[in-house]
Amino acid sequence: MATDAALRRLLRLHRTEIAVAVDSAFPLLHALADHDVVPEDKFQETLHLKEKEGCPQAFHALLSWLLTQDSTAILDFWRVLFKDYNLERYGRLQPILDSFPKDVDLSQPRKGRKPPAVPKALVPPPRLPTKRKASEEARAAAPAALTPRGTASPGSQLKAKPPKKPESSAEQQRLPLGNGIQTMSASVQRAVAMSSGDVPGARGAVEGILIQQVFESGGSKKCIQVGGEFYTPSKFEDSGSGKNKARSSSGPKPLVRAKGAQGAAPGGGEARLGQQGSVPAPLALPSDPQLHQKNEDECAVCRDGGELICCDGCPRAFHLACLSPPLREIPSGTWRCSSCLQATVQEVQPRAEEPRPQEPPVETPLPPGLRSAGEEVRGPPGEPLAGMDTTLVYKHLPAPPSAAPLPGLDSSALHPLLCVGPEGQQNLAPGARCGVCGDGTDVLRCTHCAAAFHWRCHFPAGTSRPGTGLRCRSCSGDVTPAPVEGVLAPSPARLAPGPAKDDTASHEPALH
């Protein structure tokens, strides 16, 4: 009773807030009518008042009428009001819900409408889902798969039609296919003929059939049928067999079959498995989609049935006599038709004709302190090069084509190399640097090759510096006499390219 009084008091307290929050009759008014909170006449009256005075006034009048009803109607109103779709449509209802007392429970059932309790003993237990329907569909599909699609060729003596089998029958139906081979029951999904010589313990000319048996419980189990008994694959494991010639990621696949039913060829011909030897223990289905393919039931050349050999690369099948050149017997292992072999060759040939990528240039590290003349020119003028003790990398590039010797140069053309002071002394051009340390401070000019250098860098042994005729380390061993002091540049003949010694390969005349 306390809860009923509290709900009535809360409705009177929030009546105006609810009326202002509800700006549309749908969905709240319609939901109240659906849950029998508002009768039909009051529903029509509220809609009429909404058209006349507006939605807030109409709902305020409806809530005032609701306060005169019993506690069950008020409880049902609060339940409908706080439904998710009403809270989404009328956003101003959320503060009312947040301020609702926590001790007021809106989930209690309506009085007088409590459903009768059902004894637990009368409640049926839930049924577990079964796979009976899938099993029945598999039974119905198996006879259809064994139905012949056409008439065999005159040369083929193997013609068999499976008798119709009602689904209610649980007995196995067997077809006489000759040579002791028996087909599987209607619940078998796949059958492959297997030679009895590969099964340990088999006697006589009995041949087993590799099947997948579907049981009534819905589970499946792969086994071997020899005669009327089934054997699990673990009985046929043979770890010492060295003649297993397995197909790549293979499961067994029928390579020879008669049109209309699988079996042995007439005249004692023995149908073979995809792999010879003992049956392997793992009978998992292969991951290669080509091995799941269903080959055609007629020859791809003459479009006739009979004894066919199936290609492992495509769905086509052929007569042995229709092949070019014809085959006398079934080859062992994987067999592919000429079209598949030709496609494989065409895929391999473009790969062989692809040009080989060019090898990157060989990189040879230079000892610290040495650099090529090109690196000396590329440096920024007026700045010493940083990191001189790091190992430089010199790339061996292809030799350029031989060019004509340089033409003779006048001494005026070499004027930018040297600057003559007032006393006739050779001065260095701006930006000249030593080729060893890279520093341009207090550098000297070689009178023979006009290269800038430090005496301490080229002659670290402490050799005394002569007063005139300074030469760098590369030119100090040259027998050519030094030019007379005061000459602007060496003779043009000295600039012609010539053979250089091994220790002077990195010091070429550089223009500054």
Rank of each mutant, 00 (worst) to 15 (best):
L49I: 00
P143V: 09
K111Y: 13
D98H: 14
D84H: 03
L122D: 14
A160P: 01
K253Y: 04
A117E: 10
K159L: 12
S64M: 01
A186N: 04
P39R: 02
K159V: 11
E17H: 03
A61F: 03
P56C: 01
F215A: 05
K164L: 12
P166Q: 12
L210M: 05
P254M: 07
N86F: 00
T130D: 03
D98K: 00
R203F: 05
T232M: 13
S234P: 13
T151D: 13
G150C: 14
G268F: 14
C55S: 01
S196P: 07
P233L: 04
S71E: 12
S248Q: 03
Q182S: 11
K42Y: 00
L146Q: 11
A265L: 13
I209C: 01
K133C: 02
K243W: 14
D105T: 05
E171H: 15
E207N: 04
A138G: 09
Q108W: 07
R149C: 07
L75H: 09
D76M: 15
P27G: 02
D103I: 03
R190T: 07
D98P: 05
S250N: 08
L146I: 08
R79H: 13
L210Q: 02
T183V: 06
A144V: 11
A261T: 11
Q173I: 15
K165R: 08
S169G: 14
D4H: 00
E51C: 01
R110T: 09
H14D: 00
S234Y: 11
P116S: 12
A186C: 13
P116D: 04
L62N: 03
R110F: 09
E17F: 01
G218A: 10
P166I: 13
V226I: 08
K222D: 07
L122P: 05
D84P: 06
A142T: 06
G227M: 00
I211A: 01
A6G: 13
D98T: 01
I18E: 06
S71P: 00
G54L: 01
L177V: 07
K222I: 02
A138P: 08
L10W: 01
L67S: 01
R8L: 01
T46S: 04
P233T: 11
K161Y: 06
W65I: 00
S107C: 12
L255A: 08
P252C: 07
K221Y: 02
R190Y: 07
H60V: 01
Q44K: 14
S169M: 04
K114F: 07
G268P: 08
F230S: 04
A144S: 07
A145N: 03
Q94A: 14
A261N: 04
K221A: 00
G155P: 01
G180W: 01
S217R: 09
R113Q: 12
A265H: 07
K165N: 08
L93Q: 01
D70S: 15
P163S: 14
H35Y: 07
A33S: 02
S195I: 02
V22L: 04
A5F: 06
